[in-house]
Every structure is written in C-alpha cells, then in structure tokens.
C-alpha cells in the first residue's frame, strides 16, 4: 500500500522474481518425484510384511534345511494357484520334529479341529490380473523373479513391486528371466554357471515363447 492508499508491488517484491523462477523449475521436479516415486507401487507395495498367525520361517525351511518350494506349494506346476500347503503337510514332519513347540500350537490346533490357519496374503494381485503360476514355472521363470530371496526371509515380505509396468518389463524382454526348468526353484542358481545343456534349454524355451507383441497383449493377463 503506498501513501495514496493504492496497492503497488513494493520494491522488495522484485527480489521474488528469481525465487519464482527457481520455484517454477523445482516445483514440477518435486511434484514428479513425489508422485512418481512416493506413490509408486515400488514404494507402497515393496516391503509389505504382514504379521502371520504362525511364525513360519522360510529362511529355516528353505534356506537352512534346503526344502524345495514344491514340497509345500505342490500345485505350482499344474495350476494357476500355488496352493498354500494344508496343515497336514506341516504335521507330516512336525509330528516328530518339535512336536511340543509353543510356536506350533496353532498348527496342531488346526490339525485337530480341522479349522484352517488363516494366513495373510502377501503377494496380492488385483482380481482383474490373472497370473498363472504353471504357465510361468513351466517356461523356466524362477520363483525368485517375483518372490525374491524367499530362502532368506524369516517373515515373507513382498520383494517386488508387482505392478503392471513391472510385469511388462519382463514380458517385453523375457530372456534374462528364463532358466532351465530344473533350476526354477533353485535360489542359488547363477546364469553365468549354466552348463551347455542348460544353455540349450534356455534357448529352446526362448524359442518356444511367443513374440513380445503377444506377451504384451492385454488378453494375456486380463479377462
């Protein structure tokens, strides 16, 4: 307000000009970072680690004891769902091993009452995305690709973002994610160590795959 009672920009407001310039440049960068990173599935989903009713450790069972994934998740090679093992599977060992462990109380209870243990779903795709375990596992896509180093997880968490863009990364270039079918559940397998035979199988699978045009068709995942 100047002496005439009118509003005029005061002299110091000129100093704001460079500030406005800086803001004009940084604000979009900030916003893009905020939305692009802060709200991305990579930030929101990865690391989701719900508490489970039973303290089951994949690190012990897979990592230390070296059990194969398919021992428990039996349907993974035949069906869309890699079924959660029934309580009976747990009890086939735990009738003898740690039969009285406090941690296994709920398992024994479930076995006796027939009431299932309610696990919390960790890897939860939207219902309009139809993922098929069998289709992937049989084409040499390792468990590792989506679930991460399960053999090192005390409590399972989501290791990958499982977003559409993330799925497409692989569907647009599947080769690096393919390994011999025999090594699908091997967490330690290293492509650099592949034998000639294994290399040949990888190539065979690669050839049997559809073009990336088809792998990225909407109908591949959405019904």
């Amino acid at each position: 307000m100047d002496s005439s009672g009118q509003f005029h920009f005061p002299r110091w407001s000129n100093l704001l000009l460079p500030a406005i310039g800086v803001l004009a440049v940084t604000a979009p960068i900030y916003l893009i970072t905020l939305v692009g990173y802060g709200a991305s599935p990579a930030t929101i989903n990865v690391g989701y680690r719900p508490e489970q009713p039973v303290e089951f450790s994949h690190a012990i069972h897979v990592g230390e004891l070296g059990m194969d994934c398919r021992y428990c998740h039996t349907t993974v090679e035949q069906a869309a769902f890699a079924a959660i093992p029934p309580t009976a599977t747990c009890m086939s060992c735990h009738t003898n091993i740690h039969p009285k462990s406090i941690k296994l109380l709920k398992v024994r209870e479930s076995y006796q009452t027939g009431q299932p243990i309610e696990w919390v779903k960790v890897h939860d795709l939207p219902d309009y995305a139809y993922f098929d375990h069998a289709a992937h596992v049989n084409k040499g896509v390792s468990c590792l690709e989506c679930h991460g180093r399960i053999d090192r997880m005390e409590v399972v968490h989501q290791a990958e973002e499982l977003s559409m863009g993330w799925c497409l990364d692989c569907h647009r270039d599947p080769t690096p994610s393919i390994r011999p079918r025999g090594q699908v559940t091997n967490m330690e397998w290293d492509p650099a160590m592949a034998t000639d035979e294994e290399q040949a199988e990888i190539e065979r699978i690669h050839k049997s795959l559809k073009s990336t045009r088809q792998l990225t068709d909407c109908s591949t995942c959405h019904r």
Partner: peptide
C-alpha cells in the same frame, strides 16, 4: 480498478492482478 478501489481487500486483489 485498482486505482479507484475503495476497500483494502479490493485494492490488494486488483493490485496483484494488475501486475504493477
């Protein structure tokens, strides 16, 4: 308008809009 405005709020608002 800025120059003829009588209320303070108007003065400021028109002032800002008039860009000096």
């Amino acid at each position: 308008l800025r120059d003829r405005a009588t209320t303070k709020i108007r003065k400021i608002v028109y002032g800002l809009l008039a860009l000096g």
